[in-house]
Design a protein around this nucleic acid. Structure first.
Lengths: 251, 251
DNA sequence: TAGTGGTCTAGACCACGCT
DNA sequence: GCGTGGTCTAGACCACTAA
């Protein structure tokens, strides 16, 4: 059972007095519990009846709110069991689109290894992309990704030094293969969606990939967002085009 | 006003007696009107009240059915005006992901020109991808796509000869820039979603792109589906990597 | 068997767009 | 003002899950 008390009323400083649908306010109240980790995974969140009593609204209104959160991927309902928080398995969502054909010719997801973690002064374009103050310091991760023990992707990852301060205390060797669950665990930063733009560059030296100027490299720029649509990660990935594969479902 | 009579009862040959939610049956009934073009664009479909009376269900059930169709992108609701069928503007959906940097460096969508339309005997891999009978004949379109009057993409498009028979009577010159609305108009085939896989190939001669073996080309394989998830188009696109750009929103 | 979410009803009132 | 969809309620019964 989840014992965390529900202490919300539905007022919210910025919503006070505005015409915001009830179910929307309920949705925000529930979402607040989710981002605060009030409820733990594996245990159902309070039932629709309980939430309805708690917030003093009808069950239908709670249902509408919960449906929104299910659509957003934050909750899952299981008939007869309850409603659960969803910690999406990242290996299937964001990384699903990224493939290399390995030795067996079957598409595989490259392993990720962080090589270094460094603090940087603000960089105009990146601070803007991350919606940070113009002088906010940054954290840069260098990361390589391997298939069959060969480096196929080289990544430069930029983060807010403030939000990801916890990473500075962690040796590069101790970073997990998957970064997003790691961000969530260590820094409470939860990647929820991302935009990617794929293109090509040839005027580049990349020691990780053993690439010389003139060689064509795949370049992927990703901006990753949290649930509230704030950008939290800016990532530039370079890859060798051989055996590269990128899959998308449209709509 | 839309005068098309509603003649459905909610029974459906394959659903008879099964446990199918009411709203789902209502959804199918409405969808049948949509695919039959019973209702015209620009005019609201019958109101939720009318549909509820017609199918003898409550308004809430109709709302649930309509919501599903809105989520699927087949209908749009406009508060105070009514609910309308949605002919999505393709220029924003499927093609949004495909860009080239033009002369001005701004991303542009390449213009499409069909060069030829030919009938082919069945080809095992393609017939399988399109879920066609092993001996069903095919239609092949050759199409190029231009930016600043230069060919940047070369496309091979495979269709069911039977479903797209109407295209055979149309000279290549008369094909529209956008193919999907054209399919819908001429053949009643409505592209609703697609899967794409992007990779690279270098052992290829392509006269349209003036490419020699050894040059690296971008290769995109797309399978496009209709509303019912039947594959209706198999497309292989080759492009020159210079200035190529591919954008994706994940989640 | 008890409790969950899933479906469905029959109302009410509100906000918006048109005329 | 009138009709549309938008929100909200307070019930009912069903289907599934777990103890």
């Amino acid at each position: 059972m989840n014992n965390s008390p529900i202490v919300d009323d539905l007022s919210s400083s910025s919503l006070e007095g505005l015409r915001v649908p009830l179910y929307e306010r309920v949705r925000l109240a529930i979402q607040r519990h989710l981002v605060a980790h009030d409820w733990s995974a594996g245990v159902p969140i309070p039932t629709e009846q309980e939430l309805a009593r708690e917030y003093d609204v009808s069950v239908g209104t709670v249902r509408k709110a919960v449906e929104c959160l299910v659509k957003d991927g934050l909750l899952v309902k299981k008939q007869g069991r309850g409603t659960f928080i969803k910690r999406p398995d990242f290996s299937q969502s964001l990384l699903r689109f990224f493939r290399y054909r390995g030795a067996t010719d079957a598409p595989v997801v490259p392993t990720g290894i962080v090589r270094s973690v460094e603090t940087y002064a603000a960089i105009k374009s990146i601070n803007e992309a991350l919606h940070l103050d113009a002088d906010a310091p940054l954290l840069k991760l260098n990361r390589v990704r391997l298939v069959d023990n060969t480096v196929v992707l080289s990544e430069e990852i930029w983060l807010s030094e403030e939000r990801f301060a916890a990473l500075k205390a962690i040796p590069a060797k101790h970073f997990d293969n998957l970064l997003y669950p790691f961000y969530d665990e260590k820094c409470g930063q939860f990647v929820f969606s991302a935009d990617e733009t794929l293109s090509f560059e040839s005027q580049l030296t990349n020691s990780m990939l053993h690439a010389e100027p003139g060689e064509l490299l795949v370049k992927i720029v990703r901006i990753a967002y949290d649930v509230k649509r704030n950008p939290i990660e800016y990532r530039i990935t370079y890859g060798r085009p051989e055996n590269f594969q990128y899959q998308v479902k449209i709509r």
